[in-house]
Design a protein around this nucleic acid. Structure first.
Lengths: 295, 295
DNA sequence: ACAACTTTGCAACATATGTTTCATATTAAT
DNA sequence: ATTAATATGAAACATATGTTGCAAAGTTGT
């Protein structure tokens, strides 16, 4: 496929023949190339979650004399990037390959900007408030229909790794309203909805509120119909240069919320995680060691 | 002229007050900033034609604790250039109101940086290649299990607005393999999977390939087991300061792909959209006039 | 010219680094 | 099931690193 001259390509090529620990080291090296040149080997090993010796072994495995050769390679790469900087800038200016390539670039840069904006104090405060409120809740019912299903599902999925605190209102049963049958005022409803707002989401949120539950919202505007019935809310921009609204900022918020919830109950999270791990392990859900062919 | 905040500027400002040897060291540092981060202090001193002690003295002279601070500064500079411009925003001092607030800030800024990185030429080219390949396909089968379900679902959902080109391999039926029953070599399988890779995704992808379908992948690494069986692939970073991997970049890629596909068939997309709109309208799925009332 | 002061080079120091060795754990083969 | 082979973790090792102390050289002021 690609040439085997560069060390990077060689590592990729030989990756499948490596032992698990070597793979872990190699993967970290591939994903953090500049760290190799900037951090000591022991530091790198620590960040990669690997023994120092493993880095030396990786070098030997690659047919090199020692780790210093690996560092030298990545140091040279950094030096070269500095030299070729002007050339690269030129290339970027002149390259107009596909007609859609600039659309892709614009979309990505705009998404990055939107997420950066979420990290400003006002937005941050709201996220924190939502996290605190979610933390107090006994149970979190999660609702997201249509496009927002993906965000709701992801939130629920991550939270199940942390325990059984969330219930996903999903499918014909859940969204029928009987999903909230056992909900009390100690529980909250986290609803994700953006314009155009699914009627069903509004109805369910209203029902939850009638029932005495606090409604917590991830939505796209201060004038979203959900704001009126929400105790706290976070806003996500959904602007996109396409025909559909972006959910990437909403997903980012969802992930941050999960992160905050986990960090507020660090010990519980850790324990729940180990349980989930064991469970999935026993079910053989994930590929652990990629089949190694013998030599 | 310029500010005294950056170490570089500080060295320039104090240059005239330095002793000859310190000046020589400082000059070398200013002219070879990268070397500071890439070479050991003794090596740097040798190249600068100065005693090792002089480098330490330079650090002390600049009011720093030791040489390590100088190296740290120049290492950070290198890292920042690599992480793109979004990383520059990370320079902002963290306002620390709540204990978790800086976690939220870090997560968001790092997500923004990761997405910015996707807009670099190499990554952009891969996205474009994937979009082109998807465009050629007669049908797109979409697969994403576990956490990646959210991305797969979202891709499928958006694409259904554009017509009936995609089929989501979902639920016990779809993932059983009979979902691919009617697939031919004119169809492709778009699989989303990140580490740890769901065994089932790998098996289905392998089956699809056996069947003559092209496998197209959104995954997290050049050494992902899916790369080997994929015709084209896009890489998304998943690094996160939490216990789980982020899917925000993956979702961003998914959205960009949808945008590109729509723009490549602008007329068809428009027509399909109008159909979808009419359909949902007739079902009264969305709230049109929102009854706003205060509580 | 002489003393007080600063700068510089050198060597010693404690520490951190990359490597190697060896015992244990894990995996594969018979 | 037992043995052989390999992979891993922990500690020991020699070396390189950043720092400090001190004496020689140089500079400045009187």
């Amino acid at each position: 496929m690609s040439q085997d001259n560069s060390l990077r390509d060689q590592i990729i090529a030989l990756y499948d023949e490596m032992s698990p620990q070597l793979q872990q080291a190699a993967r970290y090296v591939l994903e953090n190339p500049q760290e190799v040149a900037l951090v000591s080997m022991r530091g790198l090993a620590r960040n990669a979650g690997v023994q120092p010796a493993t880095m030396t072994r990786l070098a030997k495995f690659m047919g090199l004399a020692g780790y210093e050769d690996i560092r030298a390679y990545y140091a040279k790469a950094i030096r070269m990037r500095a030299d070729g900087f002007a050339a690269r800038a030129m290339e970027r200016e002149t390259t107009v390959p596909d007609q859609g390539s600039d659309l892709a670039q614009h979309m990505l840069q705009s998404l990055a900007a939107q997420i950066t904006k979420l990290s400003e104090p006002e937005s941050l405060a709201r996220i924190q408030a939502v996290a605190n409120r979610l933390n107090q809740a006994r149970r979190i019912y999660v609702l997201g229909l249509r496009s927002c299903h993906s965000v709701a599902w992801h939130f629920h999925y991550v939270m199940t790794l942390l325990g059984e605190k969330t219930i996903h209102l999903d499918g014909p049963a859940g969204t029928g309203g009987d999903g909230l049958l056992h909900a009390t005022d100690k529980d909250v409803l986290l609803v994700v909805s953006i314009s155009p707002y699914a009627l069903h989401s509004l109805e369910l949120a209203a029902a939850a509120r009638e029932q005495g539950m606090a409604v917590i919202t991830i939505t796209d505007s201060e004038v979203s119909p959900l704001i009126a019935i929400s105790e706290v809310a976070v806003l996500c921009s959904t602007e996109s240069q396409t025909f559909f609204h972006t959910l990437t900022p909403a997903l980012a918020i969802s992930e941050v919320l999960c992160g905050l919830l986990a960090s507020q109950d660090r010990l519980g999270a850790l324990e729940a995680l180990q349980n989930a791990d064991r469970h999935l392990q026993s079910l053989n859900t994930y590929a652990n060691n990629i089949p190694r062919r013998r030599i």
